[in-house]
Simulated assay, not measured.
Amino acid sequence: MQNKYRLAPRNPLHVLLFAVPGAVLYAVFVLWPLLLALWSSFTDEDAYRLTTSFVGFDNYGRLFTDPAYLQTLRNTVILALICIVVPNALGLGIAVLLDRAGWAFNVMRAVFFIPVILSSVVVAVIWQQMLKDDGLINASLRAFGVADPPGWLSDPSLALYSVGWITAWQAVGTCVVLYLAGLQSIPKELLEAASIDGAGPVRRFRAVTWPLLAPSVTIMTVLSMIGGFKIYDQVKVMTNGGPGVGTTSTLAFDVVRTGIDAGAVGYGAAKAAAMFFMIAAISLLAIRVMRRREVDL
């Protein structure tokens, strides 16, 4: 029996009509601003000066001789490492515990995901109030007999790690959801076969679960790293780059402070471009390295 329904031949004009509006919007609102920012990074453009000159790579050369920028880069690397290790370790552990059927486990999954749906500004404000020297956490420590509790946001040696912990805490829910999806995609037959062969829970996790979770680990590691390099809201709300000068300043915070607050548009654009290429290079390298351990089912 001949099929009376046939697909109409694809008309290139129809494809073009659908593609052009999206391409134009992308070019106007994404590509063009990126190109303008890249061009500005090769100039000495200043918001408070009418004339602009081309300076080549002078802004980029200035970056790595600027002690303030190097301090900012160090802070960002520390925060990125915290955002990679803490959420992934906690998220994987929680996901393994919640990988069970039952309404109670479904409720717990929702509870762990609540911080993710909150604005990072809201989370930062809440934790700032809790971590103040006279906030809830220090008041609780005093109630338990700690006479001189830490200055979580006022002590230069603790402030950066406090910001990192809050950022990591908010990201745990995302890791839980992604690792749960990865755990539930593992064929139960493989785990049952390993159990029949005498493998205990730890051995099953090491020999079966962990290798098959490699794609999820790759995705979450890269996303966590990118998120760590882009931290801005938490720093702006909780410490404004302090205490002191640049103690908790990050690359993203420094770009805004330089290019917008101080009006040094050219130098700020160079910092933004360097940040972009840095994240892109590290992400590509991480993906290439981590994909080597991925296992195909």
Rank of each mutant, 00 (worst) to 15 (best):
G164L: 13
G164R: 07
G164C: 11
W165K: 05
W165M: 15
I166Q: 04
I166W: 05
T167R: 06
T167Y: 10
T167M: 14
A168Q: 07
A168S: 12
A168F: 04
W169F: 11
W169K: 01
V172I: 14
G173D: 10
G173W: 11
G173I: 09
T174V: 14
T174W: 15
T174Q: 13
C175R: 11
V176N: 12
V176P: 09
L178M: 14
L178N: 05
Y179C: 04
L180Y: 09
A181D: 02
G182M: 01
L183R: 08
L183E: 09
L183V: 08
L183W: 12
Q184Y: 10
S185Q: 13
S185H: 06
I186Y: 08
I186C: 07
I186K: 04
I186W: 11
P187W: 07
P187H: 08
P187M: 05
P187L: 09
K188M: 13
K188Y: 11
K188G: 13
K188P: 09
K188R: 14
E189Y: 08
L190V: 11
L190M: 14
L191S: 06
E192G: 09
E192P: 09
A193L: 08
A194H: 02
S195C: 11
I196P: 03
I196Q: 06
D197M: 02
G198R: 01
G198M: 00
G198W: 00
G198K: 02
A199C: 14
G200Q: 02
G200F: 05
P201E: 01
P201G: 03
P201Y: 01
V202D: 01
V202C: 10
R203C: 00
R203W: 00
F205G: 03
F205M: 10
R206A: 13
A207K: 02
A207N: 07
A207G: 03
V208S: 08
V208Q: 01
T209N: 02
W210C: 13
P211L: 02
P211A: 03
L212H: 09
L213M: 13
L213E: 07
A214M: 07
P215F: 04
S216M: 12
S216K: 03
S216G: 12
V217G: 04
V217Q: 13
T218Y: 06
T218Q: 06
T218D: 04
I219H: 01
I219M: 14
I219L: 15
M220I: 08
T221P: 00
V222G: 00
L223T: 14
S224G: 13
S224D: 10
M225I: 01
M225E: 00
M225Y: 06
M225C: 02
I226V: 15
G228E: 06
G228K: 07
F229T: 13
F229Q: 12
F229D: 11
K230D: 14
K230V: 11
Y232C: 10
Y232A: 10
D233I: 09
D233H: 11
Q234D: 15
Q234N: 15
V235N: 12
K236Y: 15
K236F: 15
K236G: 06
V237Y: 07
V237C: 06
M238V: 07
T239Q: 00
T239W: 02
T239I: 04
N240L: 10
G241K: 05
G242D: 09
G242K: 11
G242T: 05
P243T: 04
P243H: 03
P243Y: 03
P243F: 04
G244Y: 09
V245N: 09
G246M: 14
G246S: 14
G246Q: 15
